[in-house]
Simulated scan of single mutants.
Amino acid sequence: MWAQRLTAPSHFEPCETRAPSPSDLAPGQVLLRTTAGGICGSDLPFFRGGTSPDAPPERPSYGSPGFPMHEVVGEVVASAHPEHTRGDAVVGWASGFDGIAEQVVSTGDGLHRYADDLLPWEAVTIQPLACALYAVEQLGPLEGRSVAVLGQGPIGLLFSHLASGAGASRVIGVDRVERADVAATFGVDETVHAPVDRWLATLSSAERPDVVVEAIGHQTGTLNQAVDAVAFGGEIFYFGVADDLVYPFAMRTFLRKNLTLRSGVALERRRVLAAADEHLRTHPELRERYITHILDVEDVQAAFDRAAAPTTGQTKIVLTMP
Rank of each mutant, 00 (worst) to 15 (best):
D181K: 01
A89L: 15
D117Q: 14
S52K: 11
H218M: 13
T222V: 15
D43Y: 04
E278M: 13
H81P: 12
K316V: 11
E235C: 03
A183L: 06
P56Q: 10
T7I: 15
F249A: 01
T253N: 10
S23M: 13
G173Q: 02
L150S: 02
K257V: 09
D197G: 07
A275S: 15
A266I: 14
A166C: 10
R208P: 01
F304V: 06
D54L: 15
D296H: 15
V227R: 10
A89I: 01
A275T: 12
L118D: 06
L280Q: 11
E102A: 13
T260G: 08
S95I: 00
A166L: 07
V265Q: 12
T7C: 08
V76I: 05
T312C: 06
R287Y: 12
S106K: 00
W93V: 09
G50S: 12
T315W: 08
P20L: 00
S23Y: 08
L142W: 00
E178C: 13
V318P: 11
R287E: 13
N224S: 08
M1C: 08
D54K: 08
W199D: 04
G240S: 10
L267N: 11
E58K: 15
A303V: 09
L280S: 14
A229M: 10
T292A: 10
A36E: 04
G233I: 04
Q138P: 09
A180F: 02
A201D: 07
V174F: 09
F304D: 03
G240D: 03
P154H: 11
V76N: 09
Q314L: 14
R270T: 04
P248C: 01
V212L: 07
R170D: 04
A231H: 02
I291N: 06
A215M: 10
Q4V: 07
E178H: 05
V171D: 05
Q103C: 03
S61Q: 04
H283Y: 12
A26D: 11
E235Y: 05
D109E: 06
E13N: 10
L203F: 01
A276C: 15
V246W: 08
G50L: 00
I317K: 06
A123C: 00
D243L: 15
V212D: 00
L280E: 14
E122V: 10
G233A: 07
H84V: 01
A19H: 05
G99R: 03
V105G: 02
E83I: 01
W199I: 00
A166P: 00
H279Q: 13
L133E: 14
H70C: 02
A89Y: 09
Q219I: 05
A266T: 08
L319H: 07
I236V: 13
